[in-house]
Nucleic acid binder design. Sequence first.
DNA 1: CAAATGTATCGACGGTTGTCAATACGGAGG
DNA 2: CCTCCGTATTGACAACCGTCGATACATTTG
Lengths: 114, 114
Amino acid sequence: MRTRPMTVAEATDEACCPSVLAAPLAEGEAEALAQSFAALADPVRLRLLSLVAAADEVCSCELQEPLGKSQPTISHHTKALADAGLIVGEKRGRWVYWRVVPDRVEALRAALAP
Amino acid sequence: MRTRPMTVAEATDEACCPSVLAAPLAEGEAEALAQSFAALADPVRLRLLSLVAAADEVCSCELQEPLGKSQPTISHHTKALADAGLIVGEKRGRWVYWRVVPDRVEALRAALAP
DNA sequence: CAAATGTATCGACGGTTGTCAATACGGAGG
DNA sequence: CCTCCGTATTGACAACCGTCGATACATTTG
């Protein structure tokens, strides 16, 4: 049970992530959030993400055909999404299998909460 | 009460907007979503949005100082957010007052729903 | 070891974007 | 009508980004 008012730091901590609509963002928070949203600001990456989410686990080689892009381009986009923490890759043999990181997506979703 | 299974079209309609994680995105959906997320992919715009959200209604002239950018740059960013439908501006006299469009933010939030 | 194959990196090119100074637009007030 | 002042637009520049061909790396397979 709560016995005293929350501090701002505690509230932020409890909410886990900065919220855009709740209060003015600090520069650092804005910079970090902008980088995350930038990962979603490309149609190829959004489709890639949705493909990985739908299949729960997808090999890079399975992405090239549905996305209609070259292999280096696919690798570039998977890296971008991975750098943003939205997907993680596991190397098994010659293949890399990608899966989404739901918590990371949820964090971005929470940043847009009212 | 539901008497038959939902069609895909009905499900999409009920959800109102394409969801990234639910099913593979069509190219058009991905393109549109990417443009919206691109509006959020800049730290200055995120801070601008949070300032407008916090004050509920903000004049352009009140944004220049806290954001530390030139007047044309502020105008550029308000236009970008307005083009994305995230804010709307109302001109009263010499001033333009901006407010957020909660439904539009919510639509983006919904696109990240599990 | 050698060949084959999936992935990552490099280099280059064209297009986009954030920024600001200069300028144009437009309403308010003398 | 003229001036002031907030806003929008233009032009220019640097930085960034998406894309692909070429190539390097790594791992399996013969």
